[in-house]
Design a binder for these strands. Structure first.
Length: 256
DNA sequence: AATGTTGACAACCGCCTTGTT
DNA sequence: GAACAAGGCGGTTGTCAACAT
């Protein structure tokens, strides 16, 4: 595959944006939207490449961006999510309304890494060890699956209703009562669910994708585990319901 | 006051993924 | 299925202001 150049550098401006350029971009997007970033600068009369316009808009000019310093709560959230998600800045940003991945990345490198080091040096209840740590909750959750013979069920939960909503899942607090082996799931090993995968699930859950069949996580299941999450009854919710119910319910999520 | 250093953050680069033809 | 275009993402760099010497 031949990569197209990121931008045609000849004659195009780089570096910091001027107020005038910002205004042109804002006005254009407000009028016509941004269906085609590559064509946008030409149509708007900007001497920038489409990529530069997109970044400027998404990282700075978007009306829903929250400017200003990060609150302590936001910083704590970033630290927790980083424990789980690693450098997946966009995934972290998805949980912080009004904050961009770029902004979070910068805050991480300039503030939070330093703060973590200080915490570790002082050895006083570092954030990673706080009781509400999501990572700890997930670990507890997985340990529970391994150690609890009641919830460590090799077979999926068979739900009484074929239709499950996101509220079904979020309201699960105990193991399902009815379990039934299903050939389609016989080889499924729940313990194979790794942390990253679970994080994907949680991310999807939080972003509302729960109700649309978890497309990204569905693919993950199919690729990694060889199962279509639509099995056995064609409803993608089953896999997730199974995931949560066999584990005894979702850990309580922190209030992001 | 001049110079050097550091921190913050905007912007860019290049790779990867996805959608289209 | 291959080729390509475009968007998304994470890593990195460039710039500038604040602070220290």
């Amino acid at each position: 595959m031949v990569r197209a150049p990121c931008c045609e550098k000849m004659g195009l401006k780089r570096g910091p944006w001027t107020q005038e350029e910002d205004q042109i971009l804002i006005t254009y997007i407000n009028l016509y939207g941004h269906d085609n970033w590559r064509a946008l600068p030409k149509q708007a009369g900007l001497l920038r490449c489409g990529k530069s316009c997109r970044l400027r808009w998404t990282n700075y000019l978007r009306p829903d961006i929250k400017r200003g310093n990060f609150s302590r709560e936001e910083e704590d959230t970033i630290i927790e999510l980083h424990e789980i998600l690693g450098n997946r800045w966009s995934a972290i940003a998805a949980r912080l309304p009004g904050r961009t991945d770029n902004e979070i990345k910068n805050v991480w490198h300039t503030h939070l890494k330093k703060r973590l080091k200080q915490n570790q040096a002082s050895a006083t209840t570092p954030v990673a060890k706080q009781p509400h740590s999501l990572k700890m909750q997930i670990n507890d959750h997985l340990e529970n699956i391994e150690t609890n013979p009641i919830t460590n069920h090799p077979n999926p939960v068979k739900l009484e209703s074929p239709q499950h909503s996101s509220s079904d899942i979020s309201s699960v607090t105990t193991a399902a009562t009815t379990m039934e082996a299903d050939d389609a799931w016989d080889n499924y090993n729940f313990l194979d669910v790794d942390e990253n995968f679970l994080c994907d699930v949680l991310t999807d859950h939080d972003s509302g994708a729960m109700t649309s069949g978890f497309p990204a996580a569905d693919d993950h299941v199919e690729n990694v585990y060889g199962y279509s999450s639509s099995q056995p009854d064609g409803n993608g919710m089953d896999f997730w319901y199974h995931l949560f119910t066999t584990a005894g319910g979702l850990p309580e999520l922190p209030d992001f």
